[in-house]
């Protein structure tokens, strides 16, 4: 604490506090008092969070086979996986999202068996497209990371398991995957923050996440900066929580890789 509170820093903190006070007092925050907007803001934060969590989990689950296919798969699995990662990483996520929603989504109603199926009530909504696009994005980026992680597991470990007569799947489950995941773990926090920063793109396909909510408040009230400042603060708080969570998580996982 002593280390942190050097004299210049106290001055800086005072200036920052002054700036915040000025923001609170002289900017227009009256819209925050409206119950209508309070509900929208909370709903928006909730949507942002669940899209983040769902797409990270689904994306990571997909990344494992994609990484494995590239690291050890036969060519007919390795090449598609490689092309998938290249396309996902080489084109903007916004474009992938729009291709799925505006492109693919507009074909569905012209295909009778889709329109008549039980899935149609879901396919006519926007969130399945958001979840698919954002999950595939995680899968593409993390698939590449998993490839490196699988390759990075020392060969001796696998050979030892093999010579003990371990079946291939058990070896994968008990030796290879855990060690690869352990290598990926330190990067996961950063990846989750990147993914959080991608979530506002879903607002372009009519999902009312926190970004879209503040956009709507800006349009209703013609206030330019204040909702954007709130938005920035919300994302910074969520980022801070993610970083703290992963730090705690890492401190609890024993590391004893070779």
């Amino acid at each position: 604490m002593q280390d942190f509170l050097k004299p210049h820093r106290i001055v800086l903190i005072l200036i920052a506090a002054g700036l915040v006070t000025w923001c609170v007092l002289s900017l227009n925050w009256t819209w925050l008092a409206e119950p209508k907007y309070q509900v929208l803001i909370l709903q928006g934060i909730w949507r942002t969070l669940w899209i983040l969590v769902v797409t990270m989990v689904v994306g990571m689950v997909l990344a494992i086979p994609i990484g494995l296919a590239q690291a050890a798969g036969p060519w007919y699995l390795a090449w598609p996986a490689r092309i998938f990662c290249t396309v996902i990483r080489g084109t903007p996520l916004l474009m992938q999202l729009w291709l799925l929603y505006y492109g693919l989504g507009s074909l569905f109603p012209s295909i009778p068996w889709i329109k008549d199926s039980a899935l149609w009530p879901y396919l006519r909504q926007a969130w399945p497209f958001a979840v698919v696009a954002l999950s595939l994005s995680v899968a593409g980026y993390e698939g590449e990371v998993m490839r490196g992680a699988f390759k990075g597991v020392p060969h001796g470990q696998l050979e030892a398991a093999k010579s003990m007569g371990m079946p291939a799947f058990t070896m994968f489950r008990r030796i290879w995957l855990p060690q690869a995941l352990q290598r990926v773990l330190p990067t996961l926090g950063g990846e989750t923050v990147s993914q959080l920063k991608s979530t506002p793109l879903v607002s372009t396909i009519t999902i009312m996440d926190i970004y879209a909510v503040t956009g709507r408040i800006r349009q209703d009230t013609f206030i330019i900066y204040e909702p954007l400042l709130l938005l920035a603060v919300v994302y910074m708080v969520i980022t801070g929580l993610i970083v703290l969570m992963f730090r705690w998580f890492e401190s609890r996982t024993p590391t004893r890789t070779a």
């Binding site: 505006y102 989504g105 507009s106 329109k115 149609w120 006519r124 909504q125 009519t206």
Partner: peptide, 18 residues
Amino acid sequence: VKTYQTQDEANQDLAAGR
């Protein structure tokens, strides 16, 4: 009530059955 940035997107979503 769904809100769109452009009228064009709303028209497209009507055509797409959404």
